[in-house]
Amino acid sequence: MKQLRCPLNGVRPVSEFAYAGEVRDMPDPDACTDPQWADYVFNRSGVPGVKREWWCHIASGYWFIAERDTARDAVIDTYPVEKLREVHRA
């Protein structure tokens, strides 16, 4: 079983985690077109490569971000959500 390093709880088996898909920027609901919005809601990229994903440590309810290379099935980095917001502001 694979392991994942939770920024709060440390290294745990993946069975302790829930997954909520890629981190994706929501288009401005008031400015975007219907097709743009539908694309955001329904389409996901399955292209292998480095993905930023939402992961949750179930027992503690702690959400964090994992950067995962789906081509190599390797976790590159995990970090708190706050860092994601900092990156966004920058």
């Binding site: 829930a18 909520a20 949750c56 179930i58 959500v81 706050e82």
Partner: peptide
């Protein structure tokens, strides 16, 4: 639902806390 709301709270960064 609790887990999803925790995620939204983490994403939005509002000043509130959830208790299950």
């Amino acid at each position: 639902v609790y887990r999803d709301l925790l995620r939204l709270n983490a994403l939005w960064g509002l000043n509130c806390s959830l208790v299950n």
